[in-house]
Design a protein around this nucleic acid. Structure first.
Lengths: 248, 248
DNA sequence: ATCCATTATTGATTCATGTCAAAACCGTAC
DNA sequence: GTACGGTTTTGACATGAATCAATAATGGAT
């Protein structure tokens, strides 16, 4: 969309980070205005993926990281036995593929949860650029460490928290990510199915469903399918901390 | 130890990556022989920590990454409520602190599980060096992505696998890490207490204990305190895959 | 508008693991 | 050697969430 209204269109394949509404969240965030061209030089204008289409597949050669421009992506790993584990959800402005950095092959599979457009950063060119722009390198380190931390938080959630706490935490996480994009943090539509939520949080679908209805009965949220309204954010925050209270 | 036999000792504070027996596992792995001096220039000769001592603390300013030279380290995060989650165990040759890269503060707390010596890499100097040595930068990306992947694997273990499967997986992981150092992969002593294992794997101590005895009764392992012998590695590998078998 | 496949909800039952409680073991200090 | 604090083990019991099973709702395709 932001692309459609570009004025100084040089090449149809070149993305314009300058004009992108997500530049304050995405990689441009770490690049000086006058260096931004160098980032634009390596970005490949985003393809569009329909729901369910693969952006990349586990074990295929690692070529690029992808920034979500619109839509949403889920990543998952498949173990030898074929069991799937959803490892993350990626919203606009977020970078997918960091878990494969420095590797020969993708460490996970990424698919579009809805109609999704992405910007592609070929990895060899990106690595070249990060040696030239120390701030960008620093930012890459930062993003990767964030992903490690997020993953540790997830591990904590999985090993210590109840179904209600996990779901409350996810709702709050999504809420704050919508807010960063200046969208409503209390009224949004979930990009993923109950199944994905369940898988991500280490629960059975039935449990997710039950918790949703329990939250609704308590007046904490209101949900109709994927449309969710957080009626009582404080209550949700309390749920995520409840566990602690009982255990101090 | 490797330090004690250095011949060309310039400064007593300077480490010698050249002579270190772990150079094939640690950062030197990614640096050309003739560039190794530049890495040595920034390394600070390792302090020694006794069991239980903190190498660094969560939320204090992030200054350095640490390579384990001998001993072992555990990292953990403490949630607002004071609940601890062990996020990793680090053995000689492994790098601690990657989850804080690009951040202002340490994302976790690191403590010595036994008497431990470390090499310290001040982060500002390390970042400077990685823009000069693209191979080193690439390796840092690789290490960080490995940590993301490991954390995803942990999440999978926590959300999909039984107590037995989790413990079998941990034993096999430790085994292979001992083997990389040319030590016995079947006969080693656990650097961590049952409690740490339980916490890391999202189990109760009692459960860990029970699984250990169950494995012993089945003749898969033999354990006396922290001394462990893997009697039947194949059986352990089967345990980690069992889950799948039942579910295909 | 209708049909079919997929997804979501609800209920009944089971089971792995947590919790509580107590005993056994271990290493360290005196 | 003995005594102590902290681990580790073992047992009995409770429970949260999985599983099994069925029904309801949704949304895309015709």
């Amino acid at each position: 969309m932001a692309q459609a209204i570009r004025l100084h269109q040089v090449s149809p394949l070149k993305a314009s980070c300058h004009q992108c509404s997500l530049s304050n969240l995405c990689l441009p965030l770490a690049v000086e205005e006058n260096e931004l061209d160098r980032l634009e030089d390596i970005v490949q204008q985003g393809r569009i993926f329909n729901r369910g289409e693969h952006i990349f597949d586990q074990s295929t050669p690692f070529r690029s990281c992808f920034a979500v421009k619109s839509g949403a992506i889920k990543t998952s790993i498949i173990s030898e036995n074929g069991e799937e584990q959803v490892t993350g959800f990626f919203m606009p402005g977020e970078l997918v593929g960091l878990d494969s950095m420095g590797s020969k092959h993708y460490a996970c599979t990424a698919r579009a949860l809805e109609r999704t457009s992405v910007c592609e950063f070929p990895i060899d060119r990106l690595e070249e650029l990060t040696v030239k722009l120390p701030d960008l390198q620093h930012h890459m380190y930062h993003l990767m460490s964030q992903e490690i931390q997020g993953s540790h938080q997830l591990a904590m959630l999985l090993s210590k928290n109840t179904a209600e706490e996990r779901i409350a935490a996810l709702l709050l996480s999504l809420s704050s990510r919508f807010q960063r994009r200046r969208l409503s943090g209390t009224n949004f539509s979930l990009p993923m199915a109950r199944n994905d939520i369940a898988n991500f949080l280490g629960l059975a679908v039935e449990t997710v469903s039950r918790v949703f209805t329990r939250f609704q009965n308590q007046g904490i949220i209101s949900a109709r399918g994927r449309e969710v309204e957080l009626l009582d954010v404080e209550a949700l925050q309390t749920v995520t901390r409840e566990f602690s209270r009982q255990n101090i």
